[in-house]
């Protein structure tokens, strides 16, 4: 871990961060919030510089993560800090949306485009909107003048110092664990063109897509398609870069070799992710569906209003409900 970040920098960051955050957490009439923000900012900046410096050394084996990463990270962290330090709940939710979008950016940098989009749509588009609805529904009653319009619930943080310390201690520990875990993990040395790594191999299971790409690249005719195998996939060798094509009417086969390989033929993130999801985790999809169903039902049941009826009204209601049903014939099962 020592090659990735110096421990002193980490501990200093923790101390500064804790100090900064404890100042920044909302208090009534506190003027120290900007100072806290500045402290926090400087702490994070220090760490960023440290990472960048380390990245330039040949020992770490490569360049740093790049400018866009630092941009998105700064936005994400800044927004998340505002989430927790802003006195008003609506602003917190909105800053959270900003955090999500910045996270999305980072996901894209890591090559997870689908998840990034899913995050924006589901999280920012659905969950956070629900949060905003509930915040609107359940506002605290304001209590007076401008600054005092906020209830204590929002305006005053409980135990900011202890909370910050606890959080940053944990932060330090987790960082050490995570960064230490990198060295012991196995991959990290696979370079482009390594023979053992074939991301395109999944295309063997996606013959229709291969057909489409080849047709668009005019490498096969309308009657030809990739030779299908027993399991429904295509005969597609990503390592040797050969595709076996069959003529649907004539029944002959031919091979498209490496020299004719189309440039666009590669498995994108979507392909791979979809295959992984459906091929390796089908049951989990089902279960996830059930969980969502239960959540929906549960939310509906929980948020019902209970109305107290008198007994006579209850009886009437029952009769009306049972009267709407066709009476079953006596005795027989319907």
């Amino acid at each position: 871990m020592e090659t990735l970040i110096s421990p002193i920098i980490l501990y200093t960051f923790c101390v500064l961060g804790a100090a900064g955050l404890s100042l920044a957490l909302p208090r009534r009439g506190s003027k120290l919030v900007p100072i806290g923000m500045i402290l926090l900012g400087s702490a994070f900046a220090m760490v960023a510089v440290s990472f960048a410096w380390r990245a330039s050394e040949p020992l770490t084996g490569g360049a740093g993560p790049g400018l866009f990463f630092y941009l998105f990270a700064a936005i994400a962290l800044g927004a998340s800090i505002r989430v927790i330090t802003h006195p008003r709940p609506v602003y917190s939710a909105l800053y959270f949306i900003m955090t999500i979008i910045a996270s999305c950016g980072m996901y894209v940098l890591l090559g997870a485009e689908f998840v990034a989009f899913a995050l924006v749509i589901i999280y920012a588009g659905a969950i956070l909107i629900t949060y905003l609805f509930v915040i609107m529904l359940a506002t605290q009653a304001p209590t007076g003048t401008e600054d005092d319009m906020l209830d204590d619930t929002d305006a005053v943080a409980r135990e900011p110092v202890v909370g910050s310390i606890v959080g940053f201690v944990l932060m330090g520990l987790i960082s050490i664990m995570l960064l230490g875990g990198i060295e012991t993990g196995k991959p990290g040395s696979i370079k482009p063109g390594d023979p053992g790594f074939q991301p395109d191999a999944v295309l063997a299971s996606l013959p229709v897509k291969v057909d489409k790409v080849l047709r668009r690249a005019n490498l096969i005719d309308a009657d030809e398609r990739v030779l299908r195998t027993e399991g429904g996939g295509g005969v597609f060798d990503a390592a040797a870069r050969t595709i076996t094509i069959e003529h649907t009417e004539l029944g002959t086969t031919r091979v498209i070799g490496a020299d004719n390989w189309p440039e666009e033929l590669s498995a994108g993130n979507l392909d791979r992710l979809g295959w992984n999801l459906l091929h390796d985790h089908p049951m989990t999809i089902e279960i996830a569906g059930i969980i969502l169903l239960m959540a929906m039902l549960g939310a509906t049941v929980l948020a019902r209003k209970h109305v107290e009826l008198e007994d006579s009204l209850k009886a009437e209601q029952a009769k009306r409900l049972s009267g709407a049903q066709p009476r079953p014939s006596g005795g027989g099962a319907s």
Binding site: G167, L170, I174, I176
Partner: peptide, 24 residues
């Protein structure tokens, strides 16, 4: 509620410390 959460965090921290010291 937050007291309990803080307790959990503390426990987690101690566990991590133990793992750090012992394992790593």
């Amino acid at each position: 509620l937050q007291g309990y959460a803080a307790g959990m965090v503390g426990g987690l921290a101690m566990l991590l410390v133990v793992i750090l010291l012992v394992v790593r």
